[in-house]
Write a protein that binds this DNA or RNA. Structure first.
Lengths: 343, 343
DNA sequence: ACGTTAGCGGAAAGCGCTTTCCGAAAGCGC
DNA sequence: GCGCTTTCGGAAAGCGCTTTCCGCTAACGT
């Protein structure tokens, strides 16, 4: 109980009058120990407020009861939703979660990965689209390869050209295409896109899917009608303002993510444009809050919490099979009041 | 590079042709090592893709470069915002973050705390109101005392009767009182409250503050006009429905948190009540999204990200002083369009 | 009642790293 | 040029736990 004092297994053993080895076995319950002894050890441990040193244990067993999770921004509802699923899964497996939030800095992503490798985490989860930059992809891939070489498991959610790993992949292309078809069915023939940073694969895929669906109707996106913005509410807001400055030549706007769409909604409102009467607006992800906007936002729904749970489970599966596993997750188009027929 | 192979400091030392001790010093840079040797060691480490085993290091130094953070629900925007601040601070100090999400289960809270004690984290951060249950408080307090007895530091955000720890305390009472005064100033004289679970100190404080401000105007809350609900959007939604069933006898409704207020807004809309024309609505916290609701929500703004950063910094301060430190954080009443004069 | 087998508990060898303690080598003054 | 101080690098002792290896006791069969 002293400031410096750490109660060790040895102390417990002594207090219980057994050997160190017996104490260890009694507490971990693997091998047989006489019931009364086990009881005595347990009691001693309790009495001394013994707390096994996780590092010593990890070192001795050369395995660790932790997993690492790296995301772009834990404050973003998209990641927060996924993180919730991850926590659930981890808790089921009695694994602690080490969290990294890169704030979209690729360097930080790599440094987190490296730190987690040093921690010898059981598995690593990369959440969110990777960076399109070859150099970083390369660094990250190297880091992950090293990690796997020592038996680590890697899974990713939605991403990462250049990283060969088990993956839970939202159908970004397919979802966006499906959304485009729904919008076409509403009668829209001219579109604009508020795109996230085109350095992210997710963004590229969603744009590609959307575009290809339009193309098969012979509709092309004007380059002036694609505005790139940050992956945030304000990014969407500003991109929309830019779009309006350029002159909106579309009856329907697709934002790469719901978060951006929220910003767009605000910008439209400020500009005096009514959604969906003057312009329709759709997003992607189905983060919880958008149901409560006015109007509620049309989107492609992703089961965020599931995504997290499934990726975690996947990373925890027994042995790495020869081929990477890929679980594709369909997005579900949800038409809400933010989209309607063109004016 | 083999499946099992872990590159150790010994391997690096051998490859560099120096002793193990020298290798350690060369890499950590504390003591003097000849420049050329250090270079050789660095090169060898690089070549072998050496990754220091964090557990071995933690064990040897008996100190760990991690902090633990326990919150109720990482998926909740309130915690997500705080978590963002925490991550920033931790990243500044090169500390890894172990995250626990209790999903409002006190048992899980205690088990996280205990696990983090086992991890010998440098500091522990408890985020979110504590449970009002004496028994849990007691268990948690014991766990934390044990943790501190071995030199651990604890800080809390917003909470925890029974836990004596450095704290960042949002002025829940004061903020709610201030809000009440603003609402009174708008002309309201009859109020209803959508309260979160009364087992949480935060909720109790906010209710008390609100109530006391009313009391000084001689206004009392009818017990039928206080409805308890879960701390979620749906909790707010259902509590509002219950309130309507009981008969709304108020011109203004105060929800303990913004998240609940969002549910309330939906429920009012469904019931055909216009906000703020028929009823005014206010929340607490100022989570980002409520600015974009229709109408934008009046609330008491808390600097969420700051809260996280400050608590983290506080927990990391050099030595524990004799008295616990307390930083009080004022909430700022932000009047938005969800409140107006009574009908 | 004796030999055999099974099973329990103790001693000890690590797990990979840090760090103290020392001896050796190098640099300095007079 | 000799003795002394100063550095620098190596050997070794842990950090707290798990686990193998073994000796011992107890239980069983005939």
């Amino acid at each position: 109980m002293a400031e410096q004092g750490q109660v060790t297994l040895g102390d417990v053993a002594r207090a219980a009058g057994v050997s160190l080895a017996t104490a260890s076995r009694a507490l971990n319950g693997a091998t047989q120990v006489r019931a009364d002894l086990r009881q005595r050890v347990r009691a001693a441990a309790e009495r001394l407020a013994y707390s096994p040193n996780a590092h010593a244990r990890a070192l001795a067993k050369s395995s660790n009861a932790g997993v690492g999770v790296i995301c772009h921004d834990i404050g973003d509802p998209y990641f927060a939703g996924i993180a919730r699923g991850v926590m659930r899964a981890a808790s089921r497996h009695d694994l602690q979660v080490i969290l990294g939030s890169t704030f979209r800095d690729p360097l930080r992503e790599i440094s987190y990965a490296s730190m987690m490798r040093g921690q010898r985490v059981r598995a690593m989860l990369l959440v969110g689209s990777g960076f399109e930059n070859r150099e970083w992809q390369e660094s990250l891939r190297r880091e992950l390869d090293l990690y796997r070489a020592t038996g680590g498991r890697v899974a990713v959610i939605s991403r990462h050209r250049g990283v060969r790993a088990d993956a839970v992949l939202p159908e970004n292309r397919g979802g966006a295409a499906e959304l485009a078809r729904s919008l076409l069915a509403l009668g829209h023939r001219s579109f604009a896109v508020l795109s996230g940073p085109l350095s992210l694969t997710t963004v590229v895929d969603r744009l590609a899917g959307f575009r290809s669906a339009l193309a098969s109707w012979g509709i092309h996106l004007l380059s002036t009608q694609i505005v790139e913005g940050a992956f945030t509410r304000d990014g969407g807001y500003e991109a929309t303002q830019e779009l309006l400055r350029r002159g909106l030549r579309a009856t329907c706007v697709f934002a790469s993510t719901d978060v951006m769409a929220i910003g767009a909604l605000a910008a439209f409102r400020e500009a005096g444009l009514r959604v969906p009467d003057d312009v329709s607006l759709a997003g992607f992800d189905d983060i919880p809050m958008i149901r409560d906007l006015t109007p509620p936002l049309t989107t492609v729904a992703l089961p965020l919490e599931d995504l997290g749970e499934r990726a975690m489970e996947m990373a925890l599966l027994p042995e790495r099979p020869a081929r990477v596993r890929v679980e594709r997750v369909q997005g579900q188009v949800v038409l809400r009041a933010s989209t309607g027929p063109p004016p």
